[in-house]
Amino acid sequence: MNNTINNTRRLVTSRGIHLLVCSLSIITSIPLVFIIGKVFFEGIHNLNLQFITKPTPNTFNAMIAINNGENIPGGIANGIVGSFIMLILASIIAIPIGILCGTYLAENRHNKFAKCISYMTDLLQGTPSIIIGIVVYAWVVIPSHGYSAIAGSIALAVMMLPLIVRSTEEALKMLPDSLKESSLALGGSYGKTILKVLLPSASGSIFTGVLLAVSRVVGETAPITFTALGCSMVHWNIDQPMSSIPLLIWQFYNDPILQPLVWSASLFLLIFVLFINISAKIINNKSKK
C-alpha cells in the first residue's frame, strides 16, 4: 500500500519536472518568434524591388512622398553593396589568418605559447565591438586621413578572427589522430599532411565556422560607424566611406521621416542572417555524413 503511494508520488514528480523543462524550453524560443513576427509584419509592406535596388532617400523627398500618400522613394542598396564589399574584404583578411592560427593551436595543444594565444583569442572574442571600432579608428582611420570601407573591413575582420580560429581548431581536434599518422606514414611531410589531408577533411566544419562568423559581424553597427562612417550613394571605392545595412537601420531610426524604413531594413538583415545560419547548418550536416 505504502509502496503504491510512493510510486504515485514519484510519477507525479517526474511528470511535473518534465512539464517544467518543456515549458521553460518554450519560453526560450518565444523571443525569437516575437522578433521575427514583429519585424516581418512591420517591414514587409515597404520591402519591394525598389527598396533593395535604390539608395537611401533624402529626408526632403521622403517628406514630399509621405505628404502625397506615396511610398518613400529609395531603399538600402548602398547598405547592401557596402555590407557585401566589407564582408568580402573582412573574409579575405580574416579567413587565412584565422585558419592558420587555428591549425597552429590544434597542432600544439600543450605548448605554452599556443595556450597563451588561445587565451588571447578568447579575450578578443569577448572584447566589445565598439572598442574594436575605436581602436581601428585610431590605428587605421586617423593615419589614412579618412573613413573608408577598408577600415570597416579591418574592424569586422578583427571580430571574425577569434570565431574562425576557434572553429578551425575545434574542427581539426575532432579528426582522429590516425588520419594524421597515416598521412605521415606514407612519407608525407608535415606541411603536406596539413594542406592535403587535415584541412580538407575538416573543410565542412571550417566553412560552417566562417559562415557563422560572417553572420555574427554582418549586424555590427558600432565598429562601422567609427570606421566606414556611412554613405548615401552606391559605389565600389573601398578607400571611401561606405554604408552597411545595420548602419542604415541606425540612421533611419534617427530620422523621424525615414523611421518607417527601419523595419524593412531590419527584415532584410534578418532574412540575410537566417539564410547564412541555415546554410551553415546544412553544410555542417552534409560534411558530417
Partner: peptide, 19 residues
C-alpha cells in the same frame, strides 16, 4: 620521411582519407 616511404603502415581502424 625516407624511412616511411620504404616502410608502409596500415592502422587498426580503416582510415581512408575522407576528402
Amino acid at each position: 620521411i625516407d624511412v616511411r616511404r620504404k616502410i608502409g603502415m596500415v592502422f587498426q581502424r580503416p582510415n581512408p582519407f575522407p576528402n
